[in-house]
Amino acid sequence: MAPITTFYGITGPVPFLDVDIAVDNRMFVDPHAIRLHGASDRFAVRANECTESFFEEILQCVFAGNERRGLWLLQRFLEPWETRLGLAQRGFSGHGGAEDVGSWIWRALNHDINALLQVGLLKQIEDLPLFIEGIDRDITSDITTRIIFEALAEFTSHMIDRFPQFNSSGHRVDTFQCQAWDSAAREWAIKSFDLPVAGGKPLLLVPHSWARSTLLMSATRYYETKVLDYAQLERAVRLHTGKLVKTPKDQLMTEPGLGRGRVTNLNVTRRAHANNDDLIAKFKQFVDMKWTPPSGDNNLAA
């Protein structure tokens, strides 16, 4: 139909993602991008509180063996279509629904990647796509959006106050009952939110610097950098001159046990930890060092 600014007649730069209101846009909410804003804006602080409290609650269920509650919390990720982000054919509806996605995550936390949890290597929700098959940018975006729904609604309310066009020229704001994570109660809740109505449906605005076309912490990026870096060191030979000779990464990719994929990510991460090397922490340092705020990043709270 039209981008948000065109639909509402808003001119000039805006601090929200200016997506088409009628289709799914190929952008994805990235929890690590939000985290990198840290204390720079109150909405990021609120969103980070939500993801941190949710992940902590899930970990408590894993450590206590509380499968009933753990599954209940993980199987409530209703697809957040209000943002108009993601891939319709590859969201929850394309992966068997929220119950199946929640089961994948719970099974991985209790089996495949449980060893990483037990030693404290996995600390944040953005760590999961590195190791869980099927949890990529679309599912990560949907999960994150649902968890931080209240923070996004607060940002949307702020934008409604800032741009009167949301409530003028025949446009309206209505109250909707939506599922959101309550970080204080540490429970899912149905809450009332005032959201713009666009194309007959509620619209949830997303800070433009919170969404990307790819995840900052993707399984592929982790594999191509820190996983293969470590594998190179494992096989490196030091010459009598002191020079360290490393096997090229493209050659390592063809070796048994080092092919691209989350199994390799997991196995090499575990080997590194056995040698007191935290590849996940190193990867985050690498990602953070490479990251620069998007151009035109406005003060969200202005």
Rank of each mutant, 00 (worst) to 15 (best):
Q60M: 06
G296A: 13
R46N: 15
D194S: 11
F92V: 03
L216E: 13
Y222R: 01
P3E: 05
S168Q: 11
T140D: 01
K284C: 05
L252K: 02
N299G: 06
E49W: 02
A180F: 12
I280R: 14
L233C: 12
F149Q: 00
A231Q: 09
S183R: 10
L266A: 12
I147Q: 08
P164M: 08
R26I: 07
R42T: 04
F193D: 05
R262Y: 00
R76D: 09
P248Q: 09
N167V: 12
A274W: 01
D174C: 14
E224I: 02
A115F: 02
K243V: 13
I125G: 00
A88E: 13
S209C: 14
D20Y: 06
S141P: 05
V23I: 13
L239A: 09
E154W: 13
S213L: 11
A274Q: 12
G120Q: 02
E49A: 13
V101A: 01
I113S: 12
L59A: 07
F77K: 09
S157C: 14
L87D: 15
D18G: 05
L215F: 05
A98H: 10
R235H: 03
L244D: 07
D142Q: 08
I10F: 00
L258F: 07
N167W: 08
A236N: 05
G296W: 04
G94M: 02
F43H: 11
L233K: 14
F193H: 02
V45S: 13
G261R: 12
H158N: 00
S141L: 03
R69F: 07
V14P: 01
D30N: 10
W188H: 01
L73C: 08
V268A: 06
L85P: 00
H111M: 07
N298Q: 14
I139D: 00
S295I: 14
S218H: 04
S157A: 15
H208L: 13
D288P: 02
F149K: 01
R26D: 07
A64S: 13
G102T: 08
T254Y: 05
S169P: 01
L71P: 05
R107Q: 08
G96F: 14
A274G: 12
L152S: 04
L116R: 09
L128R: 02
S183T: 05
L109W: 07
G97T: 13
D161H: 15
F176Y: 11
A64V: 01
R137P: 08
K290V: 15
A236Y: 09
E56I: 01
I4C: 02
Q124Y: 10
L130Q: 03
E187S: 15
N110G: 09
G199W: 05
I125L: 15
L266P: 01
N114K: 14
L258A: 03
Q165W: 04
Q179N: 10
K191A: 10
R90G: 05
L121R: 14
P80F: 11
R35P: 08
T269E: 09
R221E: 12
L17V: 02
A272S: 07
L17G: 03
A272C: 00
Q60T: 11
L59H: 14
L36I: 07
A115D: 11
